[in-house]
Design a protein around this nucleic acid. Structure first.
Lengths: 226, 226
DNA sequence: GTCGGCAGGATTGTATACAATTTTGTGACC
DNA sequence: GGTCACAAAATTGTATACAATCCTGCCGAC
């Protein structure tokens, strides 16, 4: 689109995060500094800054003198992420319900519509991304910057977890849950929203295949069973 | 101590974080890249990497083309941080109590002792640091890496908040609370530990002066009332 | 035939150099 | 005397260059 001119460090980081979130880059993929520099037309310095940012968001893992790789959350890490979400998000849902304005509601509905559109276009990556944004939007509405930041990180990591451990590929249309949440928001029913979010997250977790067999294909070690 | 040889980016970040945590660098202080480079004997590149790390931990705020400054959490941010802690830490306390081993207990006791020693030496900064480490140690024992990372960040920020809004300077010996927690841990009483932690955090919050008068001295604008 | 060591290539970690932006100091004009 | 404008200084953002580390492939020894 606008490649002719200078993408700066921060925008590069956001671009990469989005690409990872939309599953355009697979977990475990190596992110070569020089390669990225060539692609985006910037120097390694800029690339390094972006990679460091993503490292701090736990989206990529940096091995000293080895390079940066898209993170491959372990089964254990997957459980931890969803446990953390279970601690934070029900609360954000409750607060959001209490503070919900008509504009906010419209925004959330627009998100769901966009998600459906993406699904219809077969763009599963984008649908997944938007589905995550829905949760982030709720946290934003709850008006707790600090918790919002945590939720943002957790949802990015959830995207990686889904890429690795998703089992029922068929329908990621958990849209039912999202629709139910919206109706709770409309009623400004905080307690209901909290409960719905809690069970929604539980649902997500149980839709993952966290049997230790597929545990952690550290690219090879466990992929080939030896 | 060992200044003669090469502090690398990561160790520099840890060093700075500790200095901030111990109130050796005040909130709002400017962190010049060249100055830090001279002090530590490294290049600006290394300094920048360290500063970026601390930025992501919300310990310093980076203003484009202006530089890095030690963060000055607003009253609102202060409340948010403690609200997030109230969501996470009672749970870590409960889990920690259930998993507590004799070695862990010894470690926690050692922390408290060190804290008392620091207080006795009049080294309030170090005492404050150790007091924070106590909470971090609990999160570590609870064995939830993801939540531990969040708690670490929240406690670092709490240190800044305390620097700005602490009112009853006299006794930061909330040692009572810590001792009570230890006895709950010894009994492996998770529910009690959870409750104690919750009230401890509430105690900490109410010991701050968050009246909007001292709101946010952005170094001058509000410090001099004009 | 396999294992250990050593050199070559590649990639990252750090330092230095240049470009861009902001701040500050000076001077003219109102 | 005060305010605006411009220029110099300082500081950060980015690019390039060099040093250190790691991986790969080859070769000799056992």
């Amino acid at each position: 689109m606008n490649d002719t001119v200078p993408p700066s460090a921060e925008s590069l980081a956001n671009d990469l995060e989005k690409a990872i979130h939309e599953h355009r880059i697979a977990p475990g993929a190596k992110l070569s500094e020089e390669e990225l520099g060539d692609i985006y037309g910037v120097s390694r310095t800029t690339v390094r800054a972006a990679l460091q940012a993503l490292t701090h968001r736990r989206l990529i893992e940096h091995q000293r003198n080895r390079g940066a790789f898209v993170a491959q959350p372990s089964v254990r890490e997957a459980r931890e992420v969803f446990e953390a979400r279970a601690l934070l998000e029900p609360r954000t849902a409750r607060s959001a319900a209490e503070r919900m304005t008509p504009e906010d509601l419209g925004l959330l509905r627009a998100h769901i519509d966009a998600e459906h559109a993406a699904l219809h276009d077969g763009d599963n990556g984008r649908a997944l991304y938007l589905s995550g944004q829905f949760h982030i939007e709720i946290a934003r509405i709850s008006d707790q910057e600090t918790i919002l930041n945590f939720v943002e990180q957790l949802i990015s990591r959830s995207s990686l977890i889904i890429a690795l451990y998703w089992q029922r590929r068929a329908a990621l249309c958990e849209s039912n849950a999202h629709h139910a949440l919206i109706s709770a928001f409309q009623k400004k029913d905080g307690a209901l929203a909290e409960e719905l979010m809690k069970s929604h997250l539980l649902d997500l977790l149980t839709s993952l295949d966290l049997s230790n067999k597929t545990s952690k294909p550290s690219t090879l070690r466990a992929a080939l069973s030896h």
